[in-house]
Computed example of a mutant assay.
Amino acid sequence: MRWEAFLERVQERGEYTTAQEAERAARVVLALLGAHLVGQVRAELAARLPETLALVLLNPLQAAEPLTAERFVHATAAWIEGATETTAVWDIGAVLSTTADAAGDDLMERILFQLPPGYDVLFGRPQPGRRP
Rank of each mutant, 00 (worst) to 15 (best):
M1Q: 09
R2K: 14
W3F: 15
E4Y: 11
A5C: 00
F6H: 12
L7K: 06
L7A: 10
E8A: 15
R9C: 09
V10D: 10
Q11N: 10
R13E: 12
G14S: 11
G14Q: 11
E15M: 13
E15F: 10
Q20V: 09
Q20W: 04
E23P: 00
R24C: 00
A26H: 07
A26M: 08
V28W: 02
V28E: 07
V28R: 01
V29Q: 07
V29L: 08
V29P: 05
L30E: 04
A31G: 15
L32E: 08
L33Q: 01
L33I: 03
H36T: 01
V38Q: 14
G39F: 10
G39W: 11
Q40T: 13
Q40M: 01
R42F: 01
R42P: 02
R42S: 10
A46L: 03
A46Y: 10
A47L: 05
R48D: 02
L49A: 04
P50M: 07
T52R: 15
L53T: 11
A54F: 11
A54E: 08
L55W: 13
L57M: 07
L57P: 07
N59S: 15
N59C: 07
P60G: 12
Q62V: 14
Q62Y: 12
A63V: 13
A63Q: 13
A63W: 00
E65M: 05
T68V: 05
T68N: 03
A69Q: 07
E70W: 03
R71Q: 14
F72V: 01
F72H: 02
A77Y: 04
A78L: 12
I80R: 15
I80F: 01
E81S: 12
G82T: 06
G82A: 02
G82E: 04
A83I: 00
T84P: 02
T86V: 15
T87G: 01
A88W: 06
A88T: 10
A88Q: 05
V89T: 12
V89N: 00
I92W: 01
I92Y: 01
G93K: 06
A94Q: 07
V95E: 04
V95S: 08
S97R: 13
S97K: 09
T98C: 08
T98L: 03
T98R: 05
T98K: 02
D101W: 09
A103S: 09
G104H: 09
G104L: 05
G104I: 04
D106N: 10
M108G: 02
M108A: 04
M108R: 09
E109G: 15
F113D: 14
F113Y: 11
F113S: 07
Q114Y: 06
Q114D: 01
P116A: 07
P116I: 05
P117C: 02
P117H: 06
P117W: 04
Y119G: 03
D120G: 15
D120V: 03
D120W: 03
L122C: 05
F123E: 04
R125M: 12
P128L: 13
P128D: 10
G129H: 08
G129I: 05
R130N: 10
R130G: 00
R131M: 02
P132Y: 12
P132T: 12
